[in-house]
Write a protein that binds this DNA or RNA. Sequence first.
RNA 1: UCCCGCGUAGCUCAGCUGGUAGAGCAGACGGCUGUUAACCGUCGGGUCGCAGGUUCGAGUCCUGCCGCGGGAGCCA
Length: 454
Amino acid sequence: MTPPSDSTRPAGPSTPPSPEADPPPPPATVRALPGHVGGEVALSGWVQALRVHARVAFVMLRDGTGTVQCVAVRSQLSEEDWALATTLGQEACVEISGSVRADARAPGGHELALSGLRLIGPSEDFPIQRKEHGVEFLLDHRHLWLRSGIQRAGLRIRAEVEQAIHDFFYERDFVRIDTPILTGAIGESAGTLFETDYFGDPAFLAQTGQLYVESACPAFRKVYCFGPTFRAEKSKTRRHLTEFWMIEPEVAFADSDDNMDLQEALICHLVARVLERCPTELDLLKRDRAVLEKVRPPFPRISYGEAVERLNAGGRDFEWGRDLGAVEETTISSWYDRPVFVYNYPKEAKAFYMKENPDDPRTVLCNDLLAPEGYGEIVGGSQREDDLDRLQARIREEKLPEEAYGWYLDLRRYGTFPHSGFGLGLERTVGWIAGRPHIRELIPYPRLINRLTP
RNA sequence: UCCCGCGUAGCUCAGCUGGUAGAGCAGACGGCUGUUAACCGUCGGGUCGCAGGUUCGAGUCCUGCCGCGGGAGCCA
């Protein structure tokens, strides 16, 4: 950042006599301010709020590392600086120099006694006021909404979770595999795919990287992908995005129980990391940290059959064989104070690639992980069908185009092996950890059924 | 696709059993040494989503359409 070249500050006693201005104060960040108490610094950032009185004005300056109150006292400023400071628009970009001091009256405990400022980029009539707005208005101004406190906190937690995911897998010798986003006709059900043109042929945006990470297992044993996922489902709920980010690990020689162990370890790692590194953000979001502290192993594990029995014992009339709906999931998660695994669902309710349960062929070896507090399913996983004949039979049962799965079936022809994996929805997970009601806030630019801009 | 709800000032909303449009915030101006979404005063600001209907008269009642929100299904 360019230091001010036209400082109007009066010369200090330690400054050698010079007709020119003082040497510019060293640039600093708000986060580093406590280390500069008593010294002069220059901060660059955006005006978050301005409160003007007759002889004193307060500029809340946000620089991306934090927010600090800058105090402008009229009697200590030039007319030009006072006039500039008291007419700054919300979100104007400025460089402010002054001395750092600790003051109990200031939010955050530190403030800057303003001695000079320079307008970098003016801002007039910033659309988002410091008050409540409707969702539509805020999403229309998402590019500006990102600057607000709750959005910054949520997105910072998202970034921390993303980094924690990479660290978790790196420490466990997983190899990251980036799977394709453009795919030919392959997937679980073509109705939920976004179609696009690929040199005259139809192509689809990926709705899962799973088949690809399965193929990388024999190469690296433990792999994961982390990327955008596209679902053309016409869902309009607070749990849905048409474009979201998913993490899909795949582990050779892991069975369904190993798979749940890994999910449990990952979730605990993510929650602990956010508790450790984002306490400020959690407090700003008014997230009850005590609830998150409870997220420790082991998570309860309840089979689909047990869940149905218990639901019906509680007065519900739920038929065995149906998939659990949102109401059932909320009920089940309400029985516990931490995430709960529901495992081994009926075959008809789940995807073709899941391995048949040898102890009960009506079911498959799979699990969902339901987050507490009604946040719903954040993970879906399974042991994969590794038997060629059974897999082919399942593809035919589901009336899927067998020819599209030729390369996938090759994995069962050349050294097939037991393996398991899962998909973790990033925004749902972050939404739950951050305690936000709608996952659209946990992705910088949400893509919803009726929203593609900004 | 279906169910429920909502569209009034730049923003957030009020407006009763129909009788010619209101507040707060934002903006402009003025006041105030310490504010925390500052406060006090003054001023400007409207195709009541669109179209049709009922009525002497519609923001208000009816129909259709559009937009938005929530939910179901489906999913992470």
